[in-house]
Design a protein around this nucleic acid. Structure first.
Lengths: 144, 144
DNA sequence: TATTGTTATACTCTATAACTATA
DNA sequence: TATAGTTATAGAGTATAACAATA
Protein backbone atom coordinates (compact mmCIF):
# COMPACT_ATOMS: atom_id res chain seq x y z
CA UNK A 1 0.00 0.00 0.00
CA UNK A 2 1.80 3.13 -1.19
CA UNK A 3 1.11 6.47 0.46
CA UNK A 4 -2.12 6.49 2.35
CA UNK A 5 -4.46 9.04 0.79
CA UNK A 6 -5.14 11.87 3.17
CA UNK A 7 -7.50 14.71 2.33
CA UNK A 8 -6.33 17.82 0.52
CA UNK A 9 -7.00 19.68 3.76
CA UNK A 10 -4.61 17.51 5.76
CA UNK A 11 -2.05 17.95 3.05
CA UNK A 12 -2.47 21.72 3.21
CA UNK A 13 -2.04 21.70 6.99
CA UNK A 14 1.18 19.75 6.90
CA UNK A 15 2.63 21.38 3.80
CA UNK A 16 2.35 24.95 5.10
CA UNK A 17 4.62 24.70 8.16
CA UNK A 18 7.03 22.42 6.32
CA UNK A 19 7.51 25.05 3.61
CA UNK A 20 7.90 27.81 6.17
CA UNK A 21 10.60 26.08 8.19
CA UNK A 22 12.58 24.84 5.22
CA UNK A 23 12.50 28.26 3.56
CA UNK A 24 13.80 29.88 6.76
CA UNK A 25 16.65 27.42 6.80
CA UNK A 26 17.50 28.05 3.16
CA UNK A 27 17.12 31.83 3.36
CA UNK A 28 19.37 32.13 6.38
CA UNK A 29 22.11 30.28 4.63
CA UNK A 30 23.73 33.49 3.44
CA UNK A 31 26.96 32.37 1.92
CA UNK A 32 27.78 35.81 0.58
CA UNK A 33 25.82 38.42 2.50
CA UNK A 34 26.15 40.95 -0.29
CA UNK A 35 23.29 39.44 -2.22
CA UNK A 36 20.00 38.14 -0.86
CA UNK A 37 17.97 35.12 -1.84
CA UNK A 38 15.24 37.42 -3.17
CA UNK A 39 17.65 39.21 -5.49
CA UNK A 40 19.13 35.93 -6.60
CA UNK A 41 15.73 34.51 -7.39
CA UNK A 42 14.76 37.54 -9.49
CA UNK A 43 17.98 37.26 -11.47
CA UNK A 44 17.34 33.55 -11.89
CA UNK A 45 13.91 34.25 -13.35
CA UNK A 46 15.41 36.62 -15.93
CA UNK A 47 18.05 34.07 -16.83
CA UNK A 48 15.51 31.30 -17.15
CA UNK A 49 12.70 33.12 -18.94
CA UNK A 50 14.58 35.90 -20.71
CA UNK A 51 13.96 39.67 -20.66
CA UNK A 52 10.60 40.78 -19.34
CA UNK A 53 8.81 43.82 -17.93
CA UNK A 54 9.01 44.80 -14.27
CA UNK A 55 5.35 43.86 -13.82
CA UNK A 56 5.81 40.44 -15.37
CA UNK A 57 8.81 39.79 -13.18
CA UNK A 58 6.89 40.83 -10.06
CA UNK A 59 4.09 38.43 -10.98
CA UNK A 60 6.53 35.61 -11.72
CA UNK A 61 8.21 36.13 -8.37
CA UNK A 62 4.97 36.42 -6.40
CA UNK A 63 5.64 39.92 -5.10
CA UNK A 64 3.87 43.25 -5.54
CA UNK A 65 5.28 45.77 -8.08
CA UNK A 66 6.75 48.17 -5.47
CA UNK A 67 8.67 45.30 -3.90
CA UNK A 68 10.14 44.40 -7.25
CA UNK A 69 11.04 48.06 -7.88
CA UNK A 70 13.29 47.97 -4.82
CA UNK A 71 14.93 44.71 -5.78
CA UNK A 72 15.57 45.95 -9.31
CA UNK A 73 16.97 49.31 -8.16
CA UNK A 74 19.53 47.46 -6.11
CA UNK A 75 20.42 45.01 -8.87
CA UNK A 76 20.69 47.77 -11.48
CA UNK A 77 22.91 49.87 -9.23
CA UNK A 78 25.35 46.99 -9.11
CA UNK A 79 25.19 46.39 -12.82
CA UNK A 80 23.61 42.95 -12.45
CA UNK A 81 20.53 43.79 -14.52
CA UNK A 82 19.78 46.51 -17.08
CA UNK A 83 16.63 48.48 -17.77
CA UNK A 84 15.64 48.95 -21.41
CA UNK A 85 12.80 50.92 -22.93
CA UNK A 86 9.86 48.94 -24.31
CA UNK A 87 9.84 49.37 -28.11
CA UNK A 88 6.24 50.59 -28.35
CA UNK A 89 4.95 51.18 -24.80
CA UNK A 90 6.72 54.04 -23.05
CA UNK A 91 5.35 53.05 -19.66
CA UNK A 92 6.94 49.64 -19.55
CA UNK A 93 10.48 48.88 -18.54
CA UNK A 94 12.15 45.75 -19.85
CA UNK A 95 14.68 44.07 -17.59
CA UNK A 96 17.50 41.82 -18.62
CA UNK A 97 20.33 40.16 -16.75
CA UNK A 98 23.84 41.37 -17.61
CA UNK A 99 26.99 39.33 -18.08
CA UNK A 100 28.10 40.42 -14.62
CA UNK A 101 24.73 39.20 -13.31
CA UNK A 102 25.13 35.86 -15.02
CA UNK A 103 28.60 35.46 -13.57
CA UNK A 104 27.52 36.36 -10.04
CA UNK A 105 24.45 34.13 -10.27
CA UNK A 106 26.58 31.20 -11.32
CA UNK A 107 29.08 31.74 -8.51
CA UNK A 108 26.41 32.23 -5.88
CA UNK A 109 24.57 29.15 -6.97
CA UNK A 110 27.75 27.16 -6.72
CA UNK A 111 28.39 28.10 -3.10
CA UNK A 112 24.77 27.92 -2.02
CA UNK A 113 24.25 24.65 -3.80
CA UNK A 114 27.24 23.27 -2.00
CA UNK A 115 25.48 23.95 1.26
CA UNK A 116 22.05 22.68 0.20
CA UNK A 117 23.59 19.66 -1.46
CA UNK A 118 25.21 18.80 1.85
CA UNK A 119 21.80 19.08 3.52
CA UNK A 120 20.36 16.87 0.80
CA UNK A 121 22.88 14.30 1.93
CA UNK A 122 20.63 13.33 4.82
CA UNK A 123 18.16 11.92 2.30
CA UNK A 124 18.29 8.48 0.74
CA UNK A 125 18.11 7.84 -3.01
CA UNK A 126 14.37 7.33 -2.99
CA UNK A 127 13.74 10.56 -1.11
CA UNK A 128 16.01 12.47 -3.49
CA UNK A 129 14.19 11.09 -6.50
CA UNK A 130 10.88 12.08 -4.92
CA UNK A 131 12.10 15.60 -4.24
CA UNK A 132 13.34 15.95 -7.78
CA UNK A 133 9.97 15.01 -9.17
CA UNK A 134 8.10 17.38 -6.87
CA UNK A 135 9.92 20.56 -7.89
CA UNK A 136 7.79 21.07 -11.03
CA UNK A 137 4.70 20.45 -8.90
CA UNK A 138 5.75 23.20 -6.50
CA UNK A 139 6.33 25.51 -9.47
CA UNK A 140 2.90 24.71 -10.84
CA UNK A 141 1.32 25.42 -7.46
CA UNK A 142 3.03 28.80 -7.21
CA UNK A 143 2.25 29.78 -10.77
CA UNK A 144 -1.27 30.94 -10.00
CA UNK B 1 12.47 5.47 -17.46
CA UNK B 2 11.11 7.33 -14.45
CA UNK B 3 12.55 10.70 -13.42
CA UNK B 4 15.85 11.38 -15.04
CA UNK B 5 18.50 11.57 -12.37
CA UNK B 6 19.94 15.05 -12.16
CA UNK B 7 22.73 15.94 -9.77
CA UNK B 8 22.08 17.04 -6.22
CA UNK B 9 23.38 20.44 -7.29
CA UNK B 10 20.77 20.86 -10.02
CA UNK B 11 18.11 19.81 -7.56
CA UNK B 12 19.33 22.41 -5.08
CA UNK B 13 19.24 25.13 -7.75
CA UNK B 14 15.69 24.42 -8.76
CA UNK B 15 14.34 23.66 -5.31
CA UNK B 16 15.50 26.94 -3.75
CA UNK B 17 13.50 29.41 -5.89
CA UNK B 18 10.51 27.07 -5.98
CA UNK B 19 10.37 27.07 -2.17
CA UNK B 20 10.81 30.83 -2.01
CA UNK B 21 7.98 31.64 -4.40
CA UNK B 22 5.53 29.14 -3.00
CA UNK B 23 6.18 30.28 0.57
CA UNK B 24 5.56 33.90 -0.46
CA UNK B 25 2.24 32.87 -1.95
CA UNK B 26 1.24 30.92 1.15
CA UNK B 27 2.43 33.56 3.61
CA UNK B 28 0.57 36.36 1.88
CA UNK B 29 -2.67 34.45 2.08
CA UNK B 30 -3.67 36.21 5.28
CA UNK B 31 -7.18 34.99 5.86
CA UNK B 32 -7.41 36.61 9.26
CA UNK B 33 -4.79 39.33 9.51
CA UNK B 34 -4.81 39.22 13.29
CA UNK B 35 -2.44 36.28 13.38
CA UNK B 36 0.60 35.63 11.22
CA UNK B 37 1.85 32.45 9.66
CA UNK B 38 4.88 32.52 11.95
CA UNK B 39 2.72 32.66 15.07
CA UNK B 40 0.46 29.95 13.73
CA UNK B 41 3.38 27.69 13.00
CA UNK B 42 4.78 28.09 16.54
CA UNK B 43 1.41 27.22 18.04
CA UNK B 44 1.17 24.26 15.69
CA UNK B 45 4.52 22.96 16.92
CA UNK B 46 3.32 23.15 20.53
CA UNK B 47 0.12 21.34 19.64
CA UNK B 48 1.96 18.65 17.71
CA UNK B 49 4.90 18.02 20.03
CA UNK B 50 3.50 19.12 23.39
CA UNK B 51 4.94 21.60 25.91
CA UNK B 52 8.58 22.55 25.46
CA UNK B 53 11.09 25.22 26.40
CA UNK B 54 11.50 28.48 24.48
CA UNK B 55 14.86 27.34 23.20
CA UNK B 56 13.54 24.02 21.97
CA UNK B 57 10.69 25.77 20.21
CA UNK B 58 13.09 28.22 18.54
CA UNK B 59 15.18 25.30 17.29
CA UNK B 60 12.12 23.41 16.06
CA UNK B 61 10.95 26.47 14.18
CA UNK B 62 14.34 27.28 12.71
CA UNK B 63 14.59 30.75 14.26
CA UNK B 64 16.99 32.32 16.74
CA UNK B 65 15.93 32.59 20.40
CA UNK B 66 15.30 36.37 20.34
CA UNK B 67 12.94 35.94 17.39
CA UNK B 68 10.99 33.33 19.29
CA UNK B 69 10.85 35.59 22.36
CA UNK B 70 8.94 38.15 20.30
CA UNK B 71 6.52 35.63 18.87
CA UNK B 72 5.82 34.17 22.31
CA UNK B 73 5.32 37.58 23.94
CA UNK B 74 2.62 38.31 21.40
CA UNK B 75 0.95 34.92 21.75
CA UNK B 76 1.03 35.05 25.55
CA UNK B 77 -0.45 38.55 25.60
CA UNK B 78 -3.43 37.19 23.72
CA UNK B 79 -3.78 34.15 25.93
CA UNK B 80 -2.95 31.71 23.15
CA UNK B 81 0.03 30.17 24.94
CA UNK B 82 1.11 30.08 28.60
CA UNK B 83 4.53 30.26 30.20
CA UNK B 84 5.22 27.85 33.02
CA UNK B 85 8.26 27.50 35.24
CA UNK B 86 10.53 24.53 34.61
CA UNK B 87 10.27 22.16 37.62
CA UNK B 88 13.99 22.03 38.32
CA UNK B 89 15.75 24.58 36.08
CA UNK B 90 14.88 28.16 36.96
CA UNK B 91 16.32 29.53 33.74
CA UNK B 92 14.02 27.65 31.43
CA UNK B 93 10.51 28.64 30.50
CA UNK B 94 8.10 25.95 29.40
CA UNK B 95 5.49 26.94 26.85
CA UNK B 96 2.14 25.31 26.24
CA UNK B 97 -0.78 26.09 23.98
CA UNK B 98 -4.02 27.09 25.74
CA UNK B 99 -7.58 26.04 24.92
CA UNK B 100 -8.07 29.43 23.31
CA UNK B 101 -4.93 28.78 21.26
CA UNK B 102 -6.19 25.38 20.18
CA UNK B 103 -9.51 26.87 19.15
CA UNK B 104 -7.94 29.69 17.16
CA UNK B 105 -5.45 27.33 15.53
CA UNK B 106 -8.25 25.04 14.40
CA UNK B 107 -10.29 27.89 12.98
CA UNK B 108 -7.33 29.47 11.22
CA UNK B 109 -6.30 26.19 9.74
CA UNK B 110 -9.79 25.66 8.43
CA UNK B 111 -9.89 28.95 6.54
CA UNK B 112 -6.28 28.76 5.35
CA UNK B 113 -6.66 25.16 4.33
CA UNK B 114 -9.73 26.11 2.34
CA UNK B 115 -7.58 28.48 0.35
CA UNK B 116 -4.62 26.14 -0.09
CA UNK B 117 -6.91 23.24 -0.89
CA UNK B 118 -8.35 25.34 -3.69
CA UNK B 119 -4.82 25.98 -4.97
CA UNK B 120 -4.12 22.26 -4.75
CA UNK B 121 -7.04 21.84 -7.12
CA UNK B 122 -4.78 22.73 -10.06
CA UNK B 123 -2.89 19.49 -9.48
CA UNK B 124 -3.90 16.09 -10.76
CA UNK B 125 -4.18 12.97 -8.59
CA UNK B 126 -0.65 11.85 -9.30
CA UNK B 127 0.83 15.23 -8.42
CA UNK B 128 -1.18 15.36 -5.20
CA UNK B 129 0.03 11.91 -4.20
CA UNK B 130 3.59 12.99 -4.91
CA UNK B 131 3.21 16.13 -2.82
CA UNK B 132 1.77 14.14 0.05
CA UNK B 133 4.73 11.82 0.07
CA UNK B 134 7.24 14.66 -0.07
CA UNK B 135 6.06 16.50 3.05
CA UNK B 136 7.94 14.18 5.44
CA UNK B 137 11.01 14.60 3.23
CA UNK B 138 10.80 18.39 3.56
CA UNK B 139 10.43 18.00 7.32
CA UNK B 140 13.48 15.77 7.43
CA UNK B 141 15.48 18.28 5.42
CA UNK B 142 14.54 21.12 7.75
CA UNK B 143 15.20 19.13 10.90
CA UNK B 144 18.90 19.68 10.82
C1' DT C 1 31.91 29.62 33.79
C1' DA C 2 28.19 27.96 30.85
C1' DT C 3 23.44 28.12 29.64
C1' DT C 4 18.66 30.09 29.04
C1' DG C 5 16.18 33.60 27.95
C1' DT C 6 15.35 38.68 27.26
C1' DT C 7 16.28 43.49 25.82
C1' DA C 8 18.10 46.67 22.53
C1' DT C 9 18.88 47.59 18.01
C1' DA C 10 18.97 47.21 13.09
C1' DC C 11 18.27 45.33 8.61
C1' DT C 12 15.65 42.60 5.08
C1' DC C 13 11.45 41.73 2.93
C1' DT C 14 7.22 42.98 1.71
C1' DA C 15 2.88 45.45 1.57
C1' DT C 16 -0.62 49.40 0.76
C1' DA C 17 -1.51 54.11 -0.65
C1' DA C 18 -0.52 57.90 -3.35
C1' DC C 19 1.74 59.75 -7.30
C1' DT C 20 3.71 60.27 -12.23
C1' DA C 21 3.94 59.26 -16.90
C1' DT C 22 2.14 57.12 -20.77
C1' DA C 23 -1.61 54.74 -23.35
C1' DT D 1 -9.71 56.74 -17.81
C1' DA D 2 -6.73 52.80 -17.37
C1' DT D 3 -2.21 50.88 -16.90
C1' DA D 4 2.98 50.49 -15.66
C1' DG D 5 5.99 51.78 -12.66
C1' DT D 6 7.91 54.57 -8.73
C1' DT D 7 7.99 56.99 -4.27
C1' DA D 8 6.66 57.26 0.43
C1' DT D 9 5.63 54.96 4.37
C1' DA D 10 4.90 51.25 7.53
C1' DG D 11 4.77 46.70 9.52
C1' DA D 12 6.27 41.79 9.80
C1' DG D 13 10.07 38.89 10.38
C1' DT D 14 14.35 38.01 11.67
C1' DA D 15 19.16 38.57 13.15
C1' DT D 16 23.38 39.85 16.11
C1' DA D 17 25.18 41.84 20.33
C1' DA D 18 24.82 42.73 25.02
C1' DC D 19 22.68 41.67 29.31
C1' DA D 20 20.45 39.27 33.47
C1' DA D 21 19.38 35.27 35.98
C1' DT D 22 20.28 30.71 37.08
C1' DA D 23 22.97 26.38 36.93
Amino acid sequence: MPAKTTGASDLASSLRPALLRLTRLVRNQRVDTSITLTQLSAMGALLKHGPMSAGELAAAEQVQPPSMTKVLANLEERGLVVREAHPTDGRQVILDITDAGRTLLTEERRSRDAWLSRRLGVLDAEELALLERVVPVLDKLAEK
